Amino acid sequence: PATGALRVATGSNDIRVWDTETGDVLLVIKEGASALAFFTDPATGAPRLACASGKVLVFDAVAGGEALVVIDVRAGALEVFTDPATGAPRLVCDCYDEKVGVFDPVAGGEALVVIDVGSVTALATFADPATGALRIACGCSREVRIYDPVAGGWALAVLDCAYTDWVLALTVFKDSATGGLRLASGSDDKSVRIWDLVAGGATLFVLEGHTGYVYVLTAFADPATGET
């Protein structure tokens, strides 16, 4: 926030924040992390970094130091979103007890919403293009279930991914050609499948070629063509 320079955070046996232009390590936090999520504290404008590290820990992304918030839940996947009703940041994570919990990452405390989803291996948040309502996609075994992370309750939709193994990664993006919302899912069957998040139905297409499990996914626009 002081310079506007871009930073990247990585998690391994420790957490490191890097300068993307020079490659210098700017900050080391001595906590292992299996997942990271960034958000801004609405009261101060300060950048915060949430990590899954046995418990969910929230750090100052610039100064480091001790954890500002500790949420006593084991988590393997994290996502941060903004509550559309209040503008407050919310953190959603799997809780290793076949539930997904929604927490206040600024104040900590108990879960605001608990959703009984079964075993969860991946998470992705998105806005329903028809209503603007927030949704969360949960990779649950060989299918993806869509929930309302504000109201909780039963799954709003289920995508049968037709995988032979587990869904390990999810990301949501817009199709640059149609403007339609798409979901990409990766699996330990070594494939990536692309879905229409609104219409559901069969896989639009399958990406194959990995020789190992697909653990992570992201999507971006080619600056030369604008294509996703």
Rank of each mutant, 00 (worst) to 15 (best):
F126P: 00
L112D: 13
G109I: 01
C138E: 03
G23D: 11
V17R: 02
I71E: 11
T40I: 05
G108C: 03
L170V: 06
V117S: 13
K30W: 06
V144T: 07
D116T: 11
A5F: 10
A202E: 05
I115R: 01
T228F: 00
G65W: 09
K174F: 11
L134D: 00
A130I: 01
T131P: 07
T86V: 11
D148T: 05
V62W: 00
L27M: 02
L112G: 13
P84H: 09
G186R: 10
R182D: 02
A35V: 00
A77W: 09
A88I: 03
V28A: 15
A46M: 10
V17S: 10
V73S: 02
V62I: 14
L156P: 08
E66K: 06
L112Y: 06
Y96V: 15
P89F: 07
A111F: 03
A169V: 02
G109R: 08
D14Q: 03
A169T: 00
R145G: 14
N13C: 11
I194N: 05
A63T: 11
A37Q: 01
G64N: 10
G101S: 09
V216L: 10
A75P: 07
D222Q: 03
T121N: 08
R145H: 12
V73E: 13
V73Q: 03
T164Q: 10
P1Q: 10
G139P: 00
L57T: 09
D14Y: 03
V167F: 02
L156K: 08
T10I: 05
L168N: 15
S12Q: 08
V192L: 12
L49K: 05
T164C: 07
S191R: 07
A122D: 03
P42A: 12
G54Q: 06
L197V: 13
L26T: 01
I71L: 10
R90H: 04
A137L: 09
D19T: 08
P1F: 14
V73T: 12
V167H: 04
F126W: 12
L27A: 09
F205M: 14
V8F: 06
V167M: 00
E31Q: 02
C140I: 14
A88R: 07
G64C: 09
L26K: 05
V17F: 12
G139F: 03
C93S: 06
A88D: 08
